[in-house]
């Protein structure tokens, strides 16, 4: 989780990712930022993220992103 929080802060500095629960719904993560994040995640975790996974529910919080990574790693 700490590694993920570090990546998130690098992609989008200045956001409190530990508490924020509406990253997509409130417009903090727009589609361009999500793609930058996906590029980093696929690289760091060696996972394949398809367009099907790119829904707000998977990106609204650090926990949701972490859960998606774990699911794709299995």
């Amino acid at each position: 989780m700490e590694e993920l929080l570090e990546i998130l802060s690098e992609v989008k500095p200045g956001v409190d990712f530990e508490t924020e629960k509406e990253l997509v719904d409130s417009g903090i993560l727009d589609s361009m930022t999500i793609i930058q994040l996906v590029a980093r995640l696929t690289d760091e975790y060696d996972i394949e993220i398809t367009p099907m996974e790119l829904v707000p529910e998977n990106f609204n919080s650090a926990e949701a992103i972490y859960a998606m990574i774990q699911r794709l790693e299995d």
């Binding site: 589609s31 793609i35 996906v38 993220i49 398809t50 367009p51 790119l54």
Partner: peptide, 11 residues
């Protein structure tokens, strides 16, 4: 365009 062009092209 986001769901059917931007995301698939980006990925």
């Amino acid at each position: 365009f986001k769901d059917y062009v931007f995301y698939p092209v980006s990925l």
